[in-house]
Write a protein that binds this DNA or RNA. Sequence first.
DNA 1: CTGAAAGCGCTTACAG
DNA 2: CTGAAAGCGCTTACAG
Lengths: 355, 355
Amino acid sequence: MRTRLKDVAAKLNLSPALVSGVLNNRNNVWASEETRARIVEAAAALNYHPSAAAQALSKGKTDTIVFVYRRLNDPAYRLAYGGLVDALSAELQGAGYDLVVTNFATQEEVLEHLQKLASSRACDAVVLWGREADTEPQAKLLDSLKMPFLVKGRHESSHPAWHQIDFDHEWMMEQVVERLVGLGHTKIAYLGFPHDEGFVHGLRRGFFDTHRKLLGSDPDMSLIGEFEDEVAPNLNCVSKWLALSEDRRPSAFAIGAGNRAWQALECSLAHLGEQLDNRATGYAAAGITSSPFSLMFGRANVFQGIEIDNLARYVTPGLIRALSEKEPLQFVHRFRPALSESPTLAIPLGGQKLS
Amino acid sequence: MRTRLKDVAAKLNLSPALVSGVLNNRNNVWASEETRARIVEAAAALNYHPSAAAQALSKGKTDTIVFVYRRLNDPAYRLAYGGLVDALSAELQGAGYDLVVTNFATQEEVLEHLQKLASSRACDAVVLWGREADTEPQAKLLDSLKMPFLVKGRHESSHPAWHQIDFDHEWMMEQVVERLVGLGHTKIAYLGFPHDEGFVHGLRRGFFDTHRKLLGSDPDMSLIGEFEDEVAPNLNCVSKWLALSEDRRPSAFAIGAGNRAWQALECSLAHLGEQLDNRATGYAAAGITSSPFSLMFGRANVFQGIEIDNLARYVTPGLIRALSEKEPLQFVHRFRPALSESPTLAIPLGGQKLS
DNA sequence: CTGAAAGCGCTTACAG
DNA sequence: CTGAAAGCGCTTACAG
């Protein structure tokens, strides 16, 4: 039999109420320092830990947060979730919360489960992650059920009062363009995604706005490539760019796309015996990457795996605070990760001699 | 206020006990079909879901399983955990269990938390994942606390009664060698890890044993390379192998290592204008990979990301059964994933013309 | 400083 | 077929 509150109370000849009060540091409970010490000591000696279920039932608080998402086929999403769960769980653990992870194949199942979560009082809050088309109805449902939640995404214009978080995509692309222009490049191509999603538009907007601001002109529309995260279309596009005459050929690349775009870029360059470098001469690139990422051959400045771990760390305190309702809540978080040198495998290529 | 059991009972003028009995399909409860239907209907109409805490308290069962691990620096571990959590959570959800994920920086914290889990009755079972040096003491502790658990790893000789799962590494390497020999290769090099861990020894043993069995001789010890999962040492080793005279040079590679070994292999070959292929002529390779993995240039047969998802799917039913104790428990699970063609980026390299 | 009592929302014999 | 009652293990006013 595991130790219960009454066991430690009995051992000390005290009432369970007192022991409970002391152990929980309740401030309307009075006990001598000596008694407190005895209680704490006895609890430790008996290896007492309150029953989670009993506490949840009497307190009406579970100290549990549920991370809910729809499973996506795109492996990049799964990877991001993996890192996120790892970091989120670690952060919440530190604050005394458990993280339960639940995923479903369909949006219907997600919505049904959110209903159940709310009415079975199985958690204190929910974290929603995924595409905006999915998370918006999910968040709406939780909102109507008065269940606290945090949602990943850019819902700031439609739902400014939601507790939401995402990257500051416009700012990130600004950093990218500033970096490339700072190196001395003026002909900058853009590789991005073709999807109609908030972050895609944000990245594109950031590129265009900063290009205008720093170079005084709109980007050359023939140097804008937007493709799925596959090697072939990116490779095709980049190799055409590199085959342009020198006056039209880009010398730098702003990447608002995935790892396949980077791989295509590096391979196209490798064909010409070139590789990326952070210099005014030759070719340079900067941009976002999925996690985990290493360049194969060269060097570049990247937002590493968009630092999803840091995103989790950044947002957790706000979530906890929102739950304890001690401070006014900041609703819209825009995270600005650091642009830094990418890890590189530095695989020697072409004519270079191997050791 | 959320609906409680008494609410639906009151609405139907029935006692809570009856409603509870019917809703839980208890077999010593008698109610007419009509009454049953009314109860189910009313529960649905009121959106009734029993309080998880109250159920846990009265039943002494939480329907929760906790996944505990120590955070490791190696990103490959994190990735594996990510995919695992995804799959495990999905599987358990289907069986009515919640998965809570907890990770800690140190082994001490893990052990302390396991203590707490056991004495706060916060879960029905624990899943342990990580290196055997960590999981062994963890499992021992849970064992002594009578907390059911499943542990990843190869503890079959030291603790045959533990509910444990891992890949059948010997068998996997057998498949690899059979595949390469089947293609017609006889000079097979081996790339592995240098660590003193169960799976490393298993892979190596599988390679040696099968080599002897199929080729009638021990492997050439100069064609055994065991390195950390980094490009440089693998690249160095493979390029030396490829520079050997034809009578000594390997034409095939059995990989019991990580993605860096594959990258090194492909790049070494690319220098020579070669790439991997599943043929008797040229170079072939087969082996294990970390998740997610694509070859850059060529083709090969691999155990894809060691199919950690399938491992989770494979093991969940046993875990659930162990908890309900309906069937005798199979303790040691050895999973045999399928050897299949690796995804490849098929990046055209070298003198090849781009479209 | 201390203790008896009610309540959280269920489940489960048990008596009718 | 049905209902009153005790119990799961805590917390929390409240009375002393």
